[in-house]
Simulated assay, not measured.
Amino acid sequence: MSVDDVTTRREEARADRAANAEQRRADKAAERAEEREDRRLEFEQRRAAEAAKQEAREAKRAKRKAGRVRFAKTLVEASRKHALDLLFVPVILVPAILAWSAMAEYGKQIFGAVGVLLPLFSEAAMWAFAAAVTIGVRRGEPTGWLKAGVWVFAAVAAGLNFLHGFSTGHHWDTGVVMAVVSIGGVVVHQLITARPSSVRAKPATPDRPSGAPVQPEPVQSAAPPPAPVQSASVQSNPVDTSNAPAAGERPTVRPESVQPDTAEERGARAPSPERPAVAPSSPKRDRALHEARKYQALHGNLPTVDQLSETAQVSRGTAGTVLKELREQPHHLHVITNLSATKANS
């Protein structure tokens, strides 16, 4: 082997080692770059996830805040609307608690441990009827029997509490106080429910723009006005001298042509229906008539006697008379002409 071959091989080996070292450095650099990119992508993903979680937390926080604000507004509006009712809450609640606890103790003395359920018969029944009366009044339904149930069970509760108070030491004053306390809350509740309220007395009306004036519907007559009767024009026929009878001959009488009457003439001769007598007006009757017509316009039918009596604050007799008059009145037909349609479209 010559010296040149040895030198060439050494050069080739040195070049190979250099190339290998360069390749290893490039591979390591590529690995480090990939690791940096992976770490950067992982960091970006974590940051995006954190940002999404933060946005979700902010949205939930804003939603809870909006809910609290909305609840506070609703509570304030309800408090303003029922401010008068809220004033009587202590007057209603305190006697109810005292009577409930006293009746539970009295029931335990009579029936044993299960006697604590006695207030569910006396106190709870009285309050159930009282709540039913309030709901019925707000719905405009008859509440006569419900009010009777309130006072029947109020008498039961007062009697049981009186017996409880009297049995403790045979003291009349104790029994009377316990009886009055037992029904005091429900009496106040019924007085609040029975008070005249313009919000409860008027049925719900559809929303109208505040600035739009309310115009009453024009009342149109049921039948069109009768057509004017025009007399037929009378024309004298020319005298035909050629057909004139000779002297001494009897003239020939020709019958007149008979024609049927026209529709206008029949309408002109048709008798008009008599109007029913109008009852004398009074403030209570006018108010009941106004409320009944308003109820019919809103619901499509007339109210009952109880509903009209409670709504208009009139007696049942006045309400029945007004409803009878409205039922006897005929339903008018509105005649729509071209002029009315033109005015409605303009």
Rank of each mutant, 00 (worst) to 15 (best):
P218W: 04
F129I: 08
R316G: 05
I192K: 07
A33C: 01
A158Y: 04
A13N: 13
K73E: 00
L87W: 03
D27I: 02
S346T: 11
V91F: 12
E325K: 15
S197Q: 05
V91C: 10
E256V: 06
P95K: 06
Q23W: 03
H170E: 15
G149W: 05
E325I: 08
A179R: 12
R46N: 08
G140P: 02
K324M: 10
V114K: 15
V76G: 00
R39Q: 04
A288V: 06
E22Y: 04
W127Y: 14
T337P: 05
T337G: 11
R250A: 14
A179I: 07
I336M: 12
Q45K: 06
F153I: 07
L191Y: 07
V3R: 13
V116F: 09
F88Q: 01
V91H: 09
D27Y: 03
G184W: 03
R46Y: 02
A279Q: 12
P228T: 15
R17H: 12
G115L: 09
P271M: 12
E12Y: 06
V214Y: 09
E11P: 01
R208N: 11
M126E: 14
H332E: 12
A244L: 14
Q235F: 03
A62F: 03
R57W: 01
P90V: 07
L289Y: 12
R275M: 02
P206G: 14
P273I: 03
R47Q: 04
G107I: 05
G115H: 12
K53G: 10
P196S: 14
S233I: 05
V76P: 00
I92Y: 07
R80C: 02
P225H: 15
P273E: 09
D306S: 14
N237Q: 09
T174P: 04
S242D: 11
L86H: 06
A194L: 06
Q109I: 00
S346A: 14
N20Y: 02
N345Y: 14
G175Q: 08
V253W: 02
L86K: 03
E291W: 07
V335C: 09
D240W: 03
F166E: 09
R316Q: 07
S221H: 15
S2R: 07
P206F: 05
R57M: 01
T134P: 00
D261N: 11
A29G: 02
Q296S: 14
P330T: 13
T337R: 10
R285P: 04
G67M: 01
V6D: 11
A15E: 11
A157N: 14
T134G: 10
L41S: 09
R287D: 03
P213K: 02
V314K: 01
T311F: 01
H299C: 04
E141Q: 08
R9M: 10
Q230F: 01
L160E: 09
P330G: 14
G300L: 05
E42H: 09
A263T: 13
R139K: 12
R9L: 11
K202E: 13
T143K: 04
S197W: 04
K73C: 01
V214W: 08
M178Y: 08
K294Q: 10
V335M: 12
D85G: 06
K294P: 00
A222N: 14
Q109M: 08
Q307D: 05
Q235E: 13
E12Q: 15
P206M: 10
E11F: 03
A26G: 08
T321E: 13
A246T: 11
